[in-house]
Simulated assay, not measured.
Amino acid sequence: MSELKTRWDIFCTVVDNYGDIGVTWRLARQLVAEHSLAVRLWVDDLRAFERMCPEIDVHVAQQWQQGVEVRRWPAEWLPTEAADVVIAAFACQLPATYMEAMAERKQPPLWMNLDYLSAEDWVMGCHGLPSVKYKHVQKYFFFPGFQKGTGGLLRESGLLERRRQFQQDPQAQRTFLQGLGVDRAPDAQLISLFAYENAGLASWLDALASDSMSTHVLVPEGRVLGDVERWLGVNDLQAGALHVREAVTVQVLPFVRQDQYDQLLWCCDFNAVRGEDSFVRAQWAGRPLLWHIYQQEEDVHLDKLEAFLALYVKGLSAPASEAISGLWRAWNAGAKMTDHWHSTRKHWPELEKHAETWCLEQALQADLATALVQFYGNWI
């Protein structure tokens, strides 16, 4: 079957505001742009999607955005012909009538569960294996990951070259930041902060405020703003707000498109990110980072954190490894950050070099969209 005629359906239920739709929107666009596929993206919450793609009309059930057919996932499902490839993102449950439509096809579709990103060892053993069946339609596990034997990471063609050119062009960076209302002082380190609520933030901001180095913290609108407000002693922070305390400047940014967020990460010296989508994009930025992992019951998320750290710190000296690992663990425990931040700063040149090395190593793997297309090609 020709790729040009292949129809793909991607189903997304919005659980964590932006993470789920962030991943599936990137994937859908790349499948269209780079693999010439016909893609329908089914989303149950178009308002969350609108923050990422302002052109979305939340009142329209069917529309096209950047070559992707965007469909509202209705509460009452109407009869719809099943696609050649069906992706249930993050184990979302497909509509019963759509599953019947899959079973009624003369040629059953390839049905995949695109799972959450994890560096745990068991992922390699499960990736690509058959899962449950619905009648005669077989579902398969598909795991993104950081090692061979997984589905890789989302990475558009030419991304790292565009990033390299941007990071080598100070004027392009200044122009971009000025477009967001950011006036960066020449001697200030730039930090982006995108996180869930975190009790450890106040101690980190205290450390930045009392530092000999100036720091400009850029905070995209999101859940961590409440903690920022408490530290500043203000209420109702909005995009554009700017506050200075000693050596630290805190500025709130509007929620931006994905490509603009990439450029924000490329501009910054250090990126604090959360969840899955921004976590991967920060790795492609080639800069030191801090991950706030999505909290799960019984702290199972901490196993995922440790699994990633075990991979990430390979190649670092023992002191640098201990410093960055300590910082990540403290952040994810909501613990005091001061000493861990100071330790991390001591190893800054090594951590900067390592972040770029890690990025280039990950880029040696096939990207997630290509891996999915290859899996389908092998399946048929």
Rank of each mutant, 00 (worst) to 15 (best):
L225D: 01
K304P: 07
H292R: 09
Q283I: 10
R245W: 09
V250E: 02
L265Q: 15
A195R: 00
L208V: 02
N235T: 15
R281D: 04
Q260K: 13
D227R: 03
G200W: 00
H292I: 14
E229Q: 03
G226N: 00
A209S: 11
L180V: 02
T215W: 14
D206V: 04
R274I: 08
Q263L: 06
A185I: 09
E246I: 05
T215A: 15
V280R: 10
R223F: 00
A239M: 12
A272S: 14
V250R: 07
A239D: 03
L190I: 03
I293V: 11
R223Y: 01
T175W: 06
G233P: 10
L264I: 10
N198L: 06
Q251L: 03
D259F: 05
V273R: 05
Q189K: 15
A285Q: 11
L237S: 05
W291K: 08
F194A: 10
E197I: 02
P288H: 13
D277E: 08
S214M: 08
R245C: 12
D227T: 04
F279I: 07
V228W: 01
L225A: 13
L232S: 11
W204Q: 06
Q283G: 14
P186N: 14
A199L: 03
P186H: 08
E246M: 05
T215G: 04
Q238N: 09
V228E: 00
V280C: 07
